[in-house]
Amino acid sequence: MTRKPDLRSMTRRELLASGAKAGAALVIGSNFVTHATEAWAMETTALEPATMATLVQMARDIYPHDRVADQFYAAAVKGYDTPEAAPAIEAGVAALDAAAQGMGHPSYLGTPWERDRVEILRSMEQSGFFQTIRGGLVTGLYNNKEVWPVFGYEGESFSQGGYLDRGFNDINWL
């Protein structure tokens, strides 16, 4: 069974469920536009699409880089979409939603402001679930060669002859 989560509609559903105030909806509404312009979709096999959507948001909230597109966060967590990992992840996301509800939000995804989501994450910072997701992101996100250009990092240089003639000492502002 293969299911395709649509992050936009997920978020929209969450939003409807949350009965969010107009102001917040506008902010989120503009996020949909951003997402809508991203040409990517991810299939899930073992995880509920809603769970994957929550994981992607969680990943961004843990390591928020506004210039890094969702697809890189999605790539960093897609490894949890296996029959072995799924039960623990579903349980973790359920706990995350429960924590959100405990703070008066409809769910994690239905919490519009980053600062509120961060507060939810802080409340479960010591949990094995949070630490697994955070630890995995350190390599899952930052060791993705495709994301390096966003940070200016140039990666492998041997094949180009190193930087001897390519600016190892080109600093000009000192």
Binding site: I62, P64, H65, T139, Y142, N143, F151, G152, Y153
Partner: peptide, 27 residues
């Protein structure tokens, strides 16, 4: 350090914008 090691070693265990704004300035 390269970006991957910088992410691992700059402040192990840290997360959130205090950490990520540092890496945003990696260059």
């Amino acid at each position: 350090l390269g970006l991957p090691f910088m992410a691992a070693f700059l402040d192990p265990g840290a997360w959130g914008r205090e950490f990520t704004t540092a890496l945003d300035s990696y260059e």
